[in-house]
Design a protein around this nucleic acid. Sequence first.
DNA 1: ATTAACATACCAACTGGTTGGTTTTTTCTT
DNA 2: AAGAAAAAACCAACCAGTTGGTATGTTAAT
Lengths: 194, 194
Amino acid sequence: MDKKTKILESAQGLMLEKGFIASTVDDICEKAGVTKGSFFYYFKDKEDLGKNVAVHFACCQQKMIDENCCDQDEPDPLKRIYNLLDLVFETSNNPQNKGCLIGIFSQELSETHPNIRKVCEKIFNSFIDKLKKDFVLAKEKHAPKASFKPEELAEYFLASIQGSLILMRARKDPKVVQRSVKQYREYVEMLFGK
Amino acid sequence: MDKKTKILESAQGLMLEKGFIASTVDDICEKAGVTKGSFFYYFKDKEDLGKNVAVHFACCQQKMIDENCCDQDEPDPLKRIYNLLDLVFETSNNPQNKGCLIGIFSQELSETHPNIRKVCEKIFNSFIDKLKKDFVLAKEKHAPKASFKPEELAEYFLASIQGSLILMRARKDPKVVQRSVKQYREYVEMLFGK
DNA sequence: ATTAACATACCAACTGGTTGGTTTTTTCTT
DNA sequence: AAGAAAAAACCAACCAGTTGGTATGTTAAT
């Protein structure tokens, strides 16, 4: 792995634990086995790193989603959605899972680092948009007469997850995420006529 | 207002915007019209302030809930719950509303300030517990045969709100909260047989 | 020889926190 | 009621450590 990626990975790990501000450049460099000179060779400043880490994290997540479920094989959009719920349900159990960096950044930096906020906004929007498209298809196929709005349902999923991650952190209990996913799924199943 | 409360209020305002770490003691003192000497007369250290601000915020919120809806008059537990949803729906529109300090602290400090984390956990738990009690009563009264668990439903409400607040920050759009509340309400209404 | 990729050593600004003192209020004594 | 004593409330100036960031190299490959 090249040094730039090493820095990104180290920053991601630290920031998932302690947030953006509390993760110092020195710590990141030490964890990455790199000196500060190298750090500022690759990144203009800490904010620049922040934007790149956010994108890096989002790409990794999207990759995992594309690989472990959804997209390719499954032709039924509703099943693709359920597959996504299952994936979130399962990965939340994994101790490797430390939450969502985009949520952490949004919460911490929305007022102090407007540029990072914009990156987070785009990432969130593109996630919601992807999910929305499946909800649109699923509605056409399984519940054309239902009154729910696909976009709001997609947005609500993201909100449910992000919120449960906060509760998880407060309680040090990853099961919260599973319970929230379960509730959300119950809701969707009812909307689609269980 | 005495100086200690002034410090608490100033800290609350700043931290709702920029989080705990980015809100410096100096800034808090300046906003409160107090010197650093006074600050450390009232609070052992910044963490001590953090714990107190969290409790202060939680009390204010609970007071608002008790005043503006719920508890006293309304005998129907389900209606009390809907009143709470309405309150959250309405206050989220208010530009004065800057989000939830407990969620912000949980996200930012769960790994670095375990004592503050514990305070947040307690506050969350007591909120969930209050709501749960109404859900238990509501279930007995309106849907005794339903299979949902009151505690999980209460927990899921908190998660929905916290998550929507994150999205609100990322997008600078308070309407997200209203949409999430609407979705949650839809879910609850279905569970109780709309 | 030039350039990309790193490292060393350093700094100015800021951070939370302390010190030693002053003012204001309360309490106690007469 | 008066005044002394003590405690609470408050402040200006300072400090040591840390922070992001820079200036000046060195190395290795093209």
